[in-house]
Write a protein that binds this DNA or RNA. Structure first.
Length: 885
RNA sequence: GGGAGCGUAGCUCAGCCGGUUAGAGCGCUUGCCUUACAAGCAGGAGGUCACAGGUUCGAGUCCUGUCGUUCCCACCA
């Protein structure tokens, strides 16, 4: 890496020439490697492992950027920072991708078998997992690659098995036939969180069920007539007035002519449809519950795993479920069994991976008992040991935990952790073991045992991320002891249930300690029109493409500026351009400083001496300002108000440092007495700016740092408030001069005075400000772009401006229109009068005086005083015009 | 049905504990190629802070309600 010696810095910053080399420099230097023996206070962040399904998207870019900002900030503050990266095998998502790919090739899972499939999946992991890491590096992420983990690493897998075994021992895992959400395309069960519900326009058919041997019928409303083959009862609410009359009676299921009973159950809404529900326990969650209460056959399946009607459906068997619906409805109609048909808005669940409609389906699955786990996860958040930022997201976690049902953790997939359960062919007993291959059946001791075919929910393994990545189940592992509990988890609100909540209860279960102290929740990255970025809309943006075009720093800047924790953000090319411009501005400031302040050898940017500040207001001012800024920025950073912190640095750097200090520096550098001190100050202040900005835009700042200073910025100290550098007077003095310059500029623009009109300015300062202005006459002249500035008490036929610090007269060779000047003054006077009035009203109210804090009263008093002073001056000028005629 | 967010300039959004004349970026507009930067510099226009009440000496900020909007949760089949 070219550390310095940039004699000719390019006019336009080119991130392409910088970023890759800087990252290599950091990585080779091992600056991001965490050390469990450093003796420093640890600060741990675990990267939410991206799925190996494909490429990183903008959401990842935001998530990673936020983490990197925090990691770099904490590292610069002297913490031993561990930011542990990794990837997730993403069982169902990856398997869906691979099978889709295979389908195109015309092969199926069955064709190639489990072993070959796993081989293929690992190859996929190598390819895409590697690509993801490449992308994370491109973003500038300062994570410790030596500790990189994958959720299917062999020791990680061992920890998953161990966890399973422990839960099983505590009776928190059970196996049983239950109704689950079944995806007929992925051919697996999925958990409740993995079902996405959407409001859809469907139909409600009113179907006649005749009483046995009677001509009377009862009408039942259903959205799923194709499931009548699975009807095992009709149910009615016990409070329904018809209930007594019909309860226990037998009705005949249409078409299949099976006889079923009418039962009473409180889960039937009296007011929905006809108030009578057909109960299909094997294909509806609600009906399953009712079935259990009334001893109905739970496993009476009529639809198979692929979504086709089975042999129980007579001539309809073999029909796809939605096809069957149409045919059944038609047949019912022709049998005159449909009373009416109406449109209905209802919620339909679909698979979060493949989007096909979920079939509630009874099958044998493994479950985690949630009761006690959920309770501990609730308590820890209520106790405040885990804090959500913003706080409101703790509610999301809590309300989910408080209403949770048991968690279905088995999946009929191959890609993932195979369930560590072995079935005995001899005795049918189940052996649960954390061994890779247990030798014999625990029950009968024979060796004929076969591993369960199912694998585990991907979230079952990612729930262990906080401790498995640090060495668990080895409880004495150095990393685990030192880095656990971790400090901050950064993630989007969309995976609170999926992951955050599950990490909390899993960690409490095995570690007996919270997995992290804070959870920083961020929102979604949307497109410029506020739409969610998605493949189907084609509005997704590839972070790497953006980096190629604008640079990683600009991307990071665009993602972070203007965000507030928990809120969504929009991403647009306009924002990106603004961000790139900022980076370029920074680069050019460096270029300017390099051109004017060249030291033979790079400096240690240790501090500024009081000596440096002695003879320049502007040095005192800028040092005080950057000192203030450091304080505010650190306060914001601690609260994770990263967008706000960045905004403050931005406006200081651009609006104060560049616009004022650098411009003034150009003038002061000509003063031999000030020159050296100025150089030292600019050097130091710029160093502080680089420190403050580094977590946000690490590449360009590191690059520039190398031009001016020794050492590595990434591991330098963050800028920090220093009470010794406070200088309150500098602020008002600088403001006094700046306000005069601004006033002249505004007036000139207003009056369309062109620069070539050579105007002369005379100022009359307040006596106490005389020295201040005397010192700064040249600065005022140059920055206001006027011909001359001098002191004078009065000046006929001149435009007059009154500021808090001075009266200013503008004079050109041309004579101003007196009337116009007077009018300007009068408008100004009117404006001031209005303000005075508004503030004086406060004092007419006795309650204001008695109740408002003295500080505020005092503040407003001086405000009024100042305004009145100004008003007097203006009136005097107006008076002059009258006398003058 | 329950819960949450948002509503501030043409657009995207800041605005901490209530306290002078409500801010930024972009866009628009006027004038500038002023030796770091035209990806720039110096000006300017543009706001009933969704609406209605309330608390308060004082409300964009706190409370209640209304409207609009977005999202999350929930077994009306």
């Amino acid at each position: 890496m070219c550390r310095r010696g940039l004699i000719n810095l390019e006019k336009v910053y080119n991130p392409k020439l910088v970023e890759n080399r800087i990252y290599e420099f950091w990585e080779n230097g091992g600056f991001f490697k965490a050390n469990a023996n450093s003796g420093k206070t640890p600060y741990t962040i675990l990267m939410p492992p991206p799925n190996i399904t494909g490429n990183l998207h903008m959401g990842h870019a935001l998530d990673n950027t936020l983490q990197d900002i925090i990691a770099r900030y904490k590292r610069m503050q002297g913490f031993e920072v561990l930011w542990l990266p990794g990837t997730d095998h993403a069982a169902i998502a990856t398997e869906a991708k691979i099978t889709a790919q295979m389908r195109e090739e015309g092969v199926s899972k069955k064709d190639i078998g489990r072993e070959a499939f796993m081989k293929r999946a690992y190859a996929w992991k190598e390819k895409y997992g590697g690509n993801i890491c490449y992308q994370i590096k491109k973003l500038g992420s300062s994570c410790d690659w030596s500790r990189q983990r994958f959720t299917m690493d062999s020791d990680y897998s061992a920890s998953v098995r161990e966890f399973f075994v422990r839960l099983h021992k505590k009776n928190l895992i059970y196996r049983g036939k239950r109704i689950v959400n079944w995806c007929t395309k992925c051919l697996t069960s999925i958990s409740d969180t993995e079902v996405e519900f959407e409001e859809e326009c469907g139909r409600l058919w009113y179907i006649k069920y005749y009483f046995k041997d009677e001509t009377e019928f009862i009408t039942v409303a259903t959205t799923r007539p194709e499931t009548i083959f699975g009807d095992l009862a009709l149910a009615i609410n016990p409070d329904d007035s018809r209930c007594k009359k019909i309860i226990g009676k037998t009705v005949v299921v249409p078409i299949c002519n099976r006889e079923i009973k009418i039962i009473a159950d409180i889960n039937v809404e009296k007011d929905f449809g006809t108030g009578v529900l057909k109960v299909t326990p094997a294909h509806d969650c609600n009906d399953f519950e009712i079935g259990r209460r009334h001893d109905l056959e739970e496993t009476f399946l009529v639809i198979d795993e692929k979504g086709f009607l089975n042999e129980k459906c007579g001539k309809y068997s073999g029909l796809e479920r939605f096809e069957a619906r149409k045919i059944v409805v038609n047949d019912l109609k022709s049998l005159n069994l449909i009373v009416k048909e109406e449109k209905i808005e209802h919620r339909v669940g679909s698979c979060y991976r493949c989007n096909s409609i979920i079939e509630p389906f009874v099958s044998e699955q493994w479950f985690v008992k949630m009761g006690s786990l959920a309770q501990s996860a609730t308590e820890i958040v209520k106790s405040g040991k885990i804090k959500f930022v913003p706080e409101r997201f703790s509610k999301v976690h809590l309300s989910w935990m408080e209403n949770i049902k048991d968690w279905c953790i088995s999946r009929q997939l191959w890609w993932g952790h195979r369930i560590p359960a072995w079935h005995c062919e001899e005795c049918g007993g189940i052996t649960i073991s954390s061994d890779d291959e247990p030798e014999k059946c625990e029950t009968c001791g024979c060796k004929k045992i076969l591993q369960d075919e199912d694998s585990l929910d991907t979230w079952f393994s990612s729930a262990l991320w906080p401790f498995s990545t640090l060495g668990w189940p080895d409880e004495k592992s150095e990393d685990l002891v030192y880095f656990y509990p971790t400090d901050t988890l950064v993630t989007g609100y969309d995976i609170i249930f999926f992951w955050v909540s599950r990490m909390i209860f899993s960690s409490l279960e095995v570690m007996k300690k919270e997995p992290f102290k804070q959870v920083l929740i961020h929102g979604l990255v949307r497109d410029s029109e506020g739409r969610k970025m998605s493949k189907s809309l084609g509005n997704g943006v590839d972070p790497v493409e953006i980096i190629e075009k604008y640079g990683a720093d600009a991307l990071r800047f665009a993602l972070v500026s203007g965000i507030t924790p928990g809120n969504d953000t929009r991403f647009s090319s306009e924002k990106l351009e603004g961000s790139r411009n900022f980076v370029n501005k920074l680069w050019n400031a460096a270029r300017f400083i390099k051109m004017n302040v060249s030291y033979a050898s790079p400096l240690h940017s240790s501090g500024v001496s009081a000596d440096c500040l002695r003879n320049s207001l502007w040095s005192r001012w800028i040092v005080d300002r950057v000192n203030d800024l450091s304080k505010e920025v650190c306060e914001n950073m601690e609260k994770f108000d990263l967008g706000l912190a960045l905004h403050k640095i931005y406006s200081f750097f651009w609006g104060e440092f560049c616009d004022w200090y650098l411009e003034i520096f150009k003038i002061e550098i000509n003063d031999e007495k000030k020159r050296e001190n100025c150089k030292m100050v600019i050097h130091w202040v710029f160093g502080q700016i680089l420190r403050l900005l580094h977590p946000f835009v690490p590449f360009v700042t590191e690059k520039i740092w190398g031009i001016f200073f020794d050492g590595v910025l990434a591991i330098s100290n963050y800028s920090k408030f220093d009470a010794n550098l406070e200088d309150k007077n500098s602020k008002s003095e600088a403001h006094g001069v700046i306000s005069v310059i601004s006033a002249i500029r505004t007036k000139c623009a207003e009056m369309r005075i062109r620069q070539d009109q050579k105007i002369n300015v005379f100022i009359l300062p307040e006596t106490q400000n005389y020295e201040l202005f005397k010192e700064n006459l040249e600065i005022i002249r140059v920055l206001s772009r006027v011909k001359s500035v001098s002191f004078s008490s009065e000046c006929q036929n001149s435009e007059v401006i009154v500021t808090d610090f001075a009266k200013i007269y503008l004079k050109t060779e041309e004579i101003f229109d007196k009337k116009e000047i007077k009018e300007h003054l009068e408008t100004e006077g009117l404006h001031i009068e209005k303000q005075i009035k508004k503030n004086k009203i406060l004092f007419e109210n006795p309650e204001f005086l008695s109740k408002a804090p003295p500080k505020v009263v005092e503040k407003i008093k001086t405000l009024i005083f100042n305004l009145e002073e100004k008003q007097k001056k203006i009136n005097k000028e107006i008076e002059n015009f009258k006398i003058g005629g």
